[in-house]
Amino acid sequence: MGFFEFRDTIQENDTVIIYISNDDLFPITVKKGEVKQTKFGAIKHNEIIGKKFGSRYDCARGYVFLLFPNPEIWTLALPHRTQILYTPDISRIVFELGLSNGKVVCESGTGSGSLSHALTRGIYPAGHLHTVEFHEERSKKARQEFEDHGLSKNITVYHRDVCAEGWPAEVDHKADAVFLDIPAPYKAIEHVKRALKLEGGEFCNFSPCIEQVQETCVKLREKGFTNIKTIECINSQTTVKTSHFPMPDFGVDYKDLEAAGVMPTNCEKIGTYVKRLEKGAKPKTRNLKEEDEKAENAVEKEELKLSECNFVVKSALAKRSQYGHTGYLTFARLPPRDESL
């Protein structure tokens, strides 16, 4: 399948993302006769062939959605072989590297291929990504994954040590942009310079620790890079939840509270409370002589207690635990090397 060639219907051998919730999604490769077990029950591959991407699949105990993969979904669904980069950092990296169709990018390390998909999208269909990974098994798995996603035309995976050897000689002075996410980026700056075009190019480094950044910036200045800038970005992702606030009981009725100016506005439940009062329901509060009133109106009016009313508020809530730090992004530009021009 082509990762960047959108298709409406699911076919055999396609990579399909099974969506259960925002935190629970995973990829499957569709094969006739296979069955995938989920917490909602089995997904029969035969049944999803011919279905439309984006459609609902009913399992025994719930339903899932069948989605077409894209780099953002892939980042959330991919099998983790390493720590990975997430969309907030990725989108900034791709933007600052100035990627566009036809450009050549170098990356190291490949890791789980989270960023690689987004980089490839930036240069697709005419460009190329040269990605170096020093862990042999990971480089093989990544190569296989890119092939399954129909991207082998645009990505070459090399198994080598970027600090020691850099990118292969045939890539020398071909790259428009280089990205590093390795433990010792400062050891590879010389190779970065060799890979970048003679007319200059963009560089980005991702490091979790400030010491790595410190040393990298020193090295970048030494090698003639300019516009060195380090940023840190933390994404706060929220979803909208409905919260309920119970009303405190002050022993008086809604109208008295409103007159005293102590009622919140724009709340759903209090609205229904008022409506029912208007329809003839009888408020139940402590300061009234409940017993007597009850005897009088017991038949006609239903009783309403303000303290039983919840105030309903829609609010945007962040996750209970979210990323407080991912890494520092250092951007730099290499000016053209030919001084005579």
């Binding site: 925002n22 907030p88 400030i210 380090t230 840190e232 994404n235 706060s236 929220t238 979803t239 520092y328």
Partner: peptide, 23 residues
């Protein structure tokens, strides 16, 4: 729709200089 989220970012620039690194 699925995968719904509202995203905002906290971004800051870091001054990186020997012995003088801080946001």
């Amino acid at each position: 729709a699925v995968m719904l989220s509202i995203n905002s970012v906290f971004e800051r620039t870091v001054q990186v200089l020997p012995m003088r690194t801080h946001p």
